[in-house]
Every structure is written in C-alpha cells, then in structure tokens.
Design a protein around this nucleic acid. Structure first.
Lengths: 227, 227
DNA sequence: TCAAAAGTGTTCGCTATACACCCATGG
DNA sequence: CCATGGGTGTATAGCGAACACTTTTGA
C-alpha cells in the first residue's frame, strides 16, 4: 500500500466495446472473465488506466493486447460512474467503442478466452456491461448519421449488399435494395472494381471499394445519412 | 494522508459547461479561479467527485451550488484525461454541459466571481478548458439535430425570432426567417399564445410556447432537424 | 423453366430553399 | 409615407420511398 492521498480516489479503468462485421451481422468481441468477481461471465476487454497514458492510449493498448490491432479506430462514448458498479471498490470506467475488421483480428496475447458474438444475441454480461453495450450501440447509431463509418468495419473490397447489411445491422432497419444503391451512387462515395464475387451461387456481384477522397470529404463536412 | 492504494489513482473531477440564452446570443457561465493554478483565470464550475455519488450527481450538485438551479438539464459529453492537463497531479475530468434558463439563475453560494460570456467571445481559460468548450459546443450541435433542445434554454414563452436566434447561435448558421417559421409550423411543436410582445418598437410579435406533448413525442422518436 | 440474386431505371410526393406580398408601427 | 420588423403564402428543385424491368445462374 504505497500510494496515499488526502481524499479517497476511485480506480479508473477503460473498457472497449469492439464491433466487427462478418458481411451479414454486427458482432461484438467479448472475453470470459478468469477472476472474481463475475468469474466465467463474458465482459468487454479493459483494464486500469496507467498514470502516464491518456484513457485513449490505454484503450488502444488494451485493444492491441486483445486483438493484435495497432491504431484501430476507437471513440470514447461515455464514462460510467455508478458508485456500486463494481462490488469490490469504487471503479469508474471510461468506455470506448472500436470499429475493426474481423478478418484482421488475431487471437490476443492474453490467455483469456475471447469470442465474437452477434450483437443481437449477447450472453449475460459482467458488471454493468449490458448497459455499456446499449449505450455503445446508441452512440454508434448516432455517429453513422454524420460520418461514413463503414470503411473501418469492411474489408478493402465489398459488395453493395454487404454495405447495406452493415447499415441495416447497425441501425436495425431494412432498406430497399434499389434505393440504397441509388443513394450510394448519388453520394459518389463508392468506386466499382472490375472484380466480381459469387457469394450466393446466383448472379455474380461487383466488388466496390470506398472512394477515399470523397469518403474523407463527407466525413469532414458532416454528411447527413437520412434513410 | 489517509487513503492508500496499491496502485496510483488519479483524481476525478466533474466540470460543467453551462449554456444559457439571452434571446439573441448563446452564453456560457464562467467562474474566476480564486486559487492557483491559473489563479484569476476564467474556468468552468466543477469540483471533485465524491465517493458516494455518481458523476452526474456530482455535476448537478456543483451546478446547484453555482446557479441555485435544482435538477437542471445536464448531459455528459466527454472525459478529458491528458496526463498533464493539471500541473499539480493527475486529474481526469468528466465533463457535462448544462442547458439552463438564464433568467432563473441566481448568484451561487460560492463567493467566487461568476459571469456570463457570449459563446463567441470567451476569454482565455484555465487548464484545457478551451478544448472542453470546443467539444461541448460540438456535442450540443450534434444533439440539436436529434432532439429539440430549445425548451431547456428558453423561457416559458418566447417569440419565433428568439427561437430562430437560438438555433442560429448554436449551429452558427443563418436561416431564412420565413422558412424557419414554415418549418416550425409543419412540425406542430409550437403553440401560439394570445399575448404579444414588442421588442423592437415596430410591429408586435406573438409569443409562443412549446407544445409539450409534441415536443416529447419528437424527442422520443429521434426527430431529424435538417436545416 | 423457374426462383433467387443482382444491376438499373422511373414515378410520385414531400420538403428544403428561394423568394414575394401584406400589415403594423414609429419616425 | 417610408423604413423596419413581423405574419403568411407560393414556386421549384431535389431527394426519399415505392415500385418495375432485365439479366444471370443453379437447380
């Protein structure tokens, strides 16, 4: 017991809701807790913030340890401070969500068991992590209205249908295939490649990539995605 | 020195960006720091989070002490964690913004000098509070796209022009007076009263109030304010 | 030959936007 | 009587939403 203060200080952790996309469904990476409390329950990766790093650096570090990803896209969305959210002692957590390409995620260094879960089929979580997930989902939905966000979640090349699935999964709505196509065309955010792919054994589908310049421009000037 | 931990813990404060509206300009309430560091500089009201209260409760308490307002509308928007943001020791701050009616704000209990500043004419601030203000403004702008927010900032009754001024001040844009009127009419969010007021010594202007039912409904279903 | 998936329009109605007109008031 | 501010209307262009047609391919 070496660090002493005149007034009590809470512990500060960062937690990271890691979103991925498999072409059909939105997924969330969870790790199984090895220790009490909530041993065996699933939870978001996270850990204590170090004294010489910002919360963002801490979250990136945790993410790197868990997924092997460097410099992933993360965003702080809320800090959870209910006095009894951790049964042991006062812990507040600064929560981030990350958008990653599932394909690029390797198993983490940590021995802990980790698994992707469909975002609409999540097991019982440790602590207040269910509340954290709800808020993360809400924040992501808000963000997607102002910034094109698909780039972070999709592979380099993808079909229109995959992009549509992504938007549908995040917003939990259904779009008309043709209207979605027209809208994307009007925004000029996509570039068609020559390659095709045949995911369904029916007609072949073109692969697209993001037009990076337009993508950044729309991200800048606060693009309004209505739907 | 009575509270000891195995690992170092940061101090945790809440800061509150208090927005008000005087009918023309968006305002921010600042207090002059009485102590070092940054003695004499303007800053946002704030203070240490207590161990038995959530950050939100802490922010409301600080706000009450400063303005006399109970249960004001506040919203957490970001937590600032740069390791050296406070020169004394590691302090992270959970930042809120509050929307209040300037008319209802009484001087605080605190002896500290407090003043309203126009949001586009802010003096040099203590700590990283300039950065906090920028982020608060941005968050408020985002919010106004999804939730009608005027209710918290305006008196019970107000003219259309005042409402327009509010939106223009927050979003930093100009609207056509007639289009703004038409839009508000279509949304059915306002109720016209019989009273008029004569702010300019020209033609009298009707006073409006919010249609609370419609207001709440739009707030619920995530209203899209385009402009 | 038929069902399913994918590429490409077309039409319609709403609304954002630009702009015009009238009324009331004080100088 | 005219400048200023306020209440109300109208025309147009563009977009969201609904929907139709065609092609490809495997069963």
């Amino acid at each position: 017991m070496t660090y002493c203060y005149k007034y009590p200080h809470p512990s500060v952790t960062t937690d990271c809701v890691i979103f991925g996309f498999d072409g059909t469904k939105l997924k969330v990476l969870l790790v199984k807790r090895a220790l009490e409390p909530f041993q065996g329950r699933w939870a978001f990766p996270g850990g204590f913030m170090k004294m010489d790093e910002s919360a963002e650096e801490g979250a990136l570090r945790e993410l790197q340890e868990e997924t092997g990803l460097q410099g992933a896209y993360i965003r702080q969305f809320h800090t959870f401070t209910a006095p009894n959210r951790d049964p042991r002692e006062r812990v507040i957590t600064i929560a981030y969500y990350a958008l990653v390409r599932m394909q690029e995620v390797k198993g983490g260094d940590d021995a802990a068991e980790a698994r992707w879960f469909a975002s609409d089929d999540i097991p019982q979580l440790a602590f207040d992590h269910d509340q954290i997930l709800r808020k993360a989902t809400k924040a992501l939905r808000q963000q997607i209205h102002f910034e094109p966000v698909g780039f972070e979640l999709l592979p380099e090349e993808f079909t229109i249908k995959e992009l549509q699935n992504l938007y549908e999964a995040i917003l939990d709505v259904r779009f008309d295939r043709r209207n979605f196509y027209n809208k994307m065309k009007r925004l000029e955010m996509l570039e068609q490649t020559n390659e095709t792919v045949n995911p369904s054994n029916k007609k072949e589908a073109f692969l697209f990539r993001f037009n990076k310049a337009k993508y950044e421009e729309l991200k800048q000037k606060g693009f309004k995605l209505e739907f």
